[in-house]
Amino acid sequence: MGNVELHYLAAAFGFIDLLLLFSYFAWEALIDLVNSLGLAWWSKVETNTPKVTYMFGPFLTRKGLESSLPTFLNDLSNEFDIPASITHKELRACVIEPLTSEKSLLSYPSLEDEELEESQGPIAESSSGETKAKIFL
């Protein structure tokens, strides 16, 4: 190959790199937008030993969450030396930090509590002032 062909080849790979980078940032922006609108799919995963709650997500589709969740649950169960009871629930929510909590009780708004959803906007706070998620179904 001559220098001219190598120059065009390098330019083509540079262009492909820029397209991939743009696609990545566009995808992340889309996920952030969907999450902020409360349309993202999450899984609330709770363990009993130790008492930890994990928020796994966000995903654009429920199918995406369901395909990734078994790997996460398997990794989580392998993380503990003793058998842990793991429960999970799929939900649509706008979730912000913290995504993991070692507290025994997290006070997410109740799925049936319409009054709480109307009065507190997209983010609910517990009585202790901790930021939680507003859940949409």
Rank of each mutant, 00 (worst) to 15 (best):
F72H: 08
K51I: 00
E46V: 15
K89D: 09
E117R: 05
M1T: 10
K44T: 10
F136C: 08
L69D: 02
W41F: 14
L18A: 12
V34D: 07
S110R: 12
Y24K: 15
N48D: 15
A124I: 13
K51R: 15
K51G: 03
L39N: 02
V45H: 09
G57V: 02
A26Y: 12
A124P: 01
T49N: 14
L106V: 11
P83L: 04
L65M: 13
P50Y: 11
K103Y: 06
E117H: 07
L106N: 06
T49I: 08
E118G: 07
S119D: 13
V45R: 03
G64N: 12
V34L: 11
S101E: 10
M55V: 01
F72N: 02
E130K: 05
D32Y: 03
F15N: 06
L106T: 09
K89W: 08
S127W: 11
N3V: 09
T71P: 00
D75P: 00
I135W: 07
D81L: 14
M1A: 12
L91C: 12
Y24P: 00
L9P: 02
L19N: 04
L37Y: 15
S119M: 13
S126P: 02
D75Y: 10
T53P: 13
E118P: 00
F22C: 14
E114V: 00
E5A: 14
H88E: 09
L111V: 14
T131M: 05
F59T: 01
K51T: 09
I135S: 04
K44P: 05
I86Q: 07
G2C: 14
P58V: 06
A124W: 13
A29F: 08
I16L: 14
L20M: 14
S67Y: 05
F25M: 10
L76V: 05
T49Y: 14
L65C: 07
S23F: 13
I16P: 02
G38A: 09
G121I: 12
L73R: 11
L60A: 07
F72Q: 01
Y8F: 15
A11S: 12
K44M: 04
P122V: 00
E117Q: 09
E79N: 06
T61N: 06
P50Q: 03
S104D: 12
K44Y: 05
V95M: 08
L65K: 01
L91N: 01
I135H: 00
L116W: 13
C94P: 00
L76M: 09
G38P: 03
A124V: 13
F59W: 04
L9V: 04
T49G: 11
G129M: 04
T61C: 10
T53F: 13
N3A: 10
E112S: 15
V4P: 00
A10I: 02
E5P: 00
I123W: 15
S85G: 09
A11K: 04
G121R: 01
S128K: 12
S67D: 10
E130G: 00
P109C: 12
L39I: 03
S36H: 14
A133N: 04
